[in-house]
Simulated scan of single mutants.
Amino acid sequence: MIDKDTYLRFCDEALVAMRDTVTDLGDGLADRRPDLPGANSPYAILTHCLGVCAYWGSTVNLGREVPRDRDAEFSATGPVADLAAATDRLRADFAGWVGEADAGMPPANPPRGRHHHDTYATQGEVLLHVYEELAQHRGQVEITRDVLRAQAS
């Protein structure tokens, strides 16, 4: 098992990398979707990741409701500076939620609904799920950036 600080370092690396990619793309390109069926913009992907961290880290694990509109995350647009600031605020909040989590205890508010087909028996499993999502979406943001740049040239 890894300690919470190490876990947070991995999550932070993924969030910071996505934040920096979105920032580097700028307001016009970060909001753009690649010309591919079902593709999302880098801005929307990062917005979704913030929702993932808040929902699973607080609502599911600790039972503290964090408002979330999952469907709206995928159509989110706006200034990249605002999203970068929201990312940094979330990183601080997430560190607090992870600090309060008890890896061996069951989640306080197990997920329900169409998007939650998996069942996680412990808060530690929930946190692993969060990192899984961050890692895969980091790669998605990087590939999306590359496609957008290629399509723009």
Rank of each mutant, 00 (worst) to 15 (best):
V52D: 00
C53V: 03
Y55R: 04
W56A: 08
G57Q: 03
G57T: 02
S58R: 12
S58H: 09
S58G: 07
V60S: 03
V60L: 05
V60E: 02
N61M: 15
N61G: 11
L62D: 09
L62F: 03
R64L: 14
R64V: 15
V66C: 08
V66T: 03
V66I: 10
P67S: 12
R68M: 02
R68H: 02
R68C: 01
R68K: 04
R68S: 05
D69Y: 08
D69W: 09
D69L: 13
D71M: 07
D71P: 15
A72F: 01
E73D: 15
E73V: 04
E73H: 14
F74S: 12
F74N: 08
S75T: 13
A76L: 10
A76R: 09
A76E: 15
T77L: 00
G78H: 10
G78C: 10
P79S: 15
P79H: 13
V80W: 12
L83G: 06
A84S: 14
A84I: 06
A85T: 13
A85D: 12
A85G: 11
A86D: 12
A86M: 11
T87Q: 06
T87E: 03
R89G: 12
L90K: 09
L90I: 03
R91M: 14
D93K: 03
D93I: 02
F94N: 01
F94D: 00
A95E: 06
G96T: 07
G96H: 08
G96Q: 01
W97Q: 04
W97E: 02
V98Q: 03
G99F: 09
G99I: 06
E100P: 01
E100D: 10
E100A: 06
E100G: 02
A101C: 10
D102F: 15
A103N: 07
A103G: 08
G104P: 02
M105G: 02
P106V: 06
P107I: 09
P107E: 01
P107S: 11
P107Q: 13
A108F: 04
A108E: 11
P110W: 02
P110S: 00
P111Q: 08
P111E: 10
P111D: 09
P111G: 10
R112E: 09
G113I: 02
H115F: 03
H115D: 11
H115R: 13
H115N: 13
H115S: 04
H115K: 10
H116G: 06
H116R: 01
H117W: 05
D118M: 03
T119D: 02
Y120E: 04
A121H: 08
A121E: 13
T122M: 00
T122C: 02
G124R: 07
G124P: 10
G124S: 13
E125N: 07
E125Y: 08
V126E: 00
L127V: 06
L127H: 12
L127M: 14
L127R: 05
H129C: 12
H129A: 08
V130Q: 07
V130R: 01
Y131M: 06
Y131G: 07
E132S: 12
E133N: 12
A135H: 14
A135T: 15
Q136I: 07
Q136S: 09
Q136C: 07
R138T: 12
Q140C: 03
Q140Y: 05
Q140S: 14
E142Y: 06
E142C: 04
I143V: 14
T144F: 05
T144I: 07
R145A: 04
D146T: 05
D146V: 00
V147L: 13
